[in-house]
């Protein structure tokens, strides 16, 4: 069975201990292959530490060297400073570089992640069904996510709410309110949480993710594989929904 992972990071981070990191693309691919992953969505942490262009260029150039089916995630910042490709230029460059999604890290890049500031990129992404990753472990707060989704309710996005505690009361309203929001399973820690979400919303709303290298790369696989759901539903979570999202964007 194919398995994709929508929550992968690699790169040096001088403020973290080395055992918490996966420093190179080569090392990432080694871990992915050992876990039996087919591919996944990858971001370079250097986007947050060195600079947004450096990291975006790095992931674009390094995923090309892998024999796994890797898609890059690019970090975006407000267009007002003209640092990154404009919303008009972005889709073509994403297609050229196999970039499957965009994300924001307002904590690292020090900007306001509010609808009025990010309107141009999010309007473009909304129209073209380009996935936006909202991962609270990547420097965006759940309140920011809530405000952005209220302003762009049809946005195609993947939500990962990083929490030490089970968090159904926070996650499930997002699934209920926003039709194109997918939940990353990386932080779905609740016992029987997968079964509960599928019973309520169907299998089309979950995407397998690990949160590697902060978390173990294979640790959520048994949660899906051994869930009390059908094989078809497992396939949707482990690869079908991911493939649909990556290939569903209009990047022309």
């Amino acid at each position: 069975m194919k398995v994709y992972d929508c929550n992968l990071t690699y790169g040096f981070n001088v403020s973290k201990r080395s055992h918490e990191l996966c420093e190179t693309m080569e090392e990432l691919c080694k871990h992915m292959k050992n876990a039996g992953l087919t591919g996944g969505l990858v971001r370079a942490v250097s986007s947050d530490t060195v600079g947004v262009n450096f990291g975006n260029d790095q992931v674009a150039s390094e995923i090309k060297n892998s024999d796994l089916d890797l898609w890059g995630a690019w970090s975006i910042v407000p267009s007002i400073t003209n640092e990154i490709p404009s919303p008009e230029e972005m889709p073509k460059l994403m297609a050229k570089n196999k970039i499957g999604a965009l994300y924001m890290n307002p904590e690292a890049h020090r900007f306001l992640a509010i609808p009025s500031v990010m309107k141009d990129y999010l309007t473009m992404a909304d129209k073209r069904k380009i996935p936006i990753v909202f991962n609270t472990a990547w420097g965006i707060s759940i309140n920011d996510v809530s405000n952005l989704m209220e302003a762009f309710p049809t946005l195609t996005c993947i939500l990962a709410y990083h929490s030490l505690w089970p968090n159904a009361r926070t996650n499930l309203p997002f699934l209920s309110l926003y039709p194109n929001l997918y939940l990353d399973t990386s932080y779905m820690l609740d016992d029987q949480g997968i079964e509960y979400v599928i019973g309520k919303f169907g299998a089309d709303k979950l995407i397998h993710g690990s949160g590697f290298p902060e978390l173990y790369i294979g640790q959520q696989m048994p949660v899906v594989k051994c869930a009390d759901i059908s094989d078809k539903e497992k396939e949707a979570i482990l690869h079908g929904n991911f493939e649909k999202l990556m290939k569903g964007a209009d990047l022309k």
Partner: peptide
């Protein structure tokens, strides 16, 4: 240990298997 019903037992299993 898992804190069941907090955390999925399979999450704990996946961790030990991945280590």
């Amino acid at each position: 240990g898992t804190d069941l019903p907090w955390f999925s037992t399979f999450h704990g299993i996946g961790t030990v298997l991945s280590a």
